[in-house]
Design a protein around this nucleic acid. Sequence first.
DNA 1: TATATTTGTGCAACCGATTGCATTAAAATC
DNA 2: GATTTTAATGCAATCGGTTGCACAAATATA
Lengths: 340, 340
Amino acid sequence: MEKKRRKVSIYDIAKALNTSGATVSRALHDHSSISIEMKEMVRKVAKEMNYRPNTVAINLKRGKCNTIGVVVPNIHRNFFSSAIDGIEEEAYKIGYDVLICQSRESYEREKKILNSLSRGKVDGVIASIASGTSEYSHYTALEDCGIPLVLFDRMSDRVNAGSVTIDDFRGAYHVVEHLFEQGRRRIFHYAGFQHVSVWYNRYRGYMQAMQSHGIEPGEDWVFIGDTSEQAGVMMARQVLKMKQRPDAIFCTSDFVALGCMLELIRNGVRVPDEIAVCGFADEPMDALISPSLTSVNQFSKKMGQQAARMLIDRLNGEPAVNIMLEPELIIRDSTLAKKS
Amino acid sequence: MEKKRRKVSIYDIAKALNTSGATVSRALHDHSSISIEMKEMVRKVAKEMNYRPNTVAINLKRGKCNTIGVVVPNIHRNFFSSAIDGIEEEAYKIGYDVLICQSRESYEREKKILNSLSRGKVDGVIASIASGTSEYSHYTALEDCGIPLVLFDRMSDRVNAGSVTIDDFRGAYHVVEHLFEQGRRRIFHYAGFQHVSVWYNRYRGYMQAMQSHGIEPGEDWVFIGDTSEQAGVMMARQVLKMKQRPDAIFCTSDFVALGCMLELIRNGVRVPDEIAVCGFADEPMDALISPSLTSVNQFSKKMGQQAARMLIDRLNGEPAVNIMLEPELIIRDSTLAKKS
DNA sequence: TATATTTGTGCAACCGATTGCATTAAAATC
DNA sequence: GATTTTAATGCAATCGGTTGCACAAATATA
């Protein structure tokens, strides 16, 4: 085990061949003005010395790093890890690397991450805003640094950036329509914090759909909170205490829906017969639990692809645009009326 | 929308203040030899000009980048995303960034990734080997470049690196013991490819446990294949065709177990009464499906933390070591004998 | 007043690559 | 044989910081 030897540079190769760094650099790039013999010698020695071009030096010289930064609340939810798959797919096609960062829904962390990324680590950023964020100066600062930004899913009008979203309003609207078709009327809604675009839009879709069916949801029909499984459990407990229970609950998150549904079942409520439950995001577990959970497919991978393509376009000087995809209602057992 | 302005450097600040880059640099670092007035002016102008230190330049000068590379097969499995959580937690404590890469179980991609990382992008690497990999020169090349390596979970004796694993052998052994206690004797095993350390060790644990109970598994008791849900479905179909069915199936992966169990149930087999099913990894879904799935907790987050700590130690000159954690059998409904 | 310290700044080299321009030697042309 | 082309290579600046050392001015000591 020897001491850490210094990394070999083109100058080490140059010295070994009694030539200059410039020649080595050109030889390795197969530049036309270098003789074939020299090229071969350089390549041979480079291999022997286990030479690796230093990306950091190259990036400094080039003024860009062929890297896209991705900032998401977390990588545990399938929605985000699939979006990342889509982003990576597109990025790798054109030789870009992807730097994944988790904000963990924290404003502070998100701020730190974006600040760090803005110091030359990435050429552009794709992000989905943390739920803890309601002030966006760290996002606008990015564009001020000349780093193009594309938001996906959770976005904000206050940030001047490209965006890829699904039509959360219509997604929610469809959910309510479906529940109506199944004979439900007393439909509750668990909403996320209203400063988060997607949760706000789903709430609006819910309200609009209810109203257009002539129903004005009561004050206690709508819950607001974080989107954890535990939050779903807590809501279920509140619902269980109510004199007049709902006949359906539409949750803005699959995890809330999961926690809620399981807690209802644990307390003897028959789902969907007594209370139908619906989530949003179409996480893989939805199909596995019983009853399987009705949800809304957000085409996360596609969103990631589109966001990546848009960012690449922006890096090539194209202007920012806003893309909205259509969601798809995935009907499963948790909302189906009793088989007659 | 103006044209992309060049990033501001310390020299831009220096020019504005009619001083030198060296002074600006020192002022920003609060160096003792710079006057207080100068420091204040520099800081003021730096803020006004929205100056951001260029990390790339700093890294080049420093010869290190305070970044740990993490290479995992994917981020979709909770095992890996949790391990990443553990790694990030430790890394962030000491101001290191984490660069996450997915090999997607592909040897080629893994090779490309490691090659890219070895070009000065990271100071050290934490990895879990892709199942498509059975040749390890790209790993040994890392250490040759002076980049310390720590493997977690899937490792190889052929690579000279630190490692953090769980005792897969004992984990598997415990599973079989438990199944025996539940009265099972004809226990099948779905194993992963045997060049992957963890799957090989679990297979060995299974065999040893069976033999020490005086049972020599038949040729057709052991299946080998990839660890997808679909593979589990296929195995279940094979099992359904057999004249003599098993009374338990121990799968080396939760996803295989899931696919297998659901397919068995779809075909009218009562789980666990007729056939018990057990997985490995304790993915969150295990507790959600019905029957809930018995599995083995691998303490993935802890593994990540330990791996990160070891890598940090290695970056500080400590030698590589091998750590093995104890797994924990999580008993759930899918293996419990009929309530008498 | 002359000398020794202290304080504050700037020059220039360096990290490892890339690249415009100059230079040299060899080959081609007249 | 003299001159122009061509081919092959090296010099030096550059990217944006950091830092050892030299240096000048201000202050302290003799």
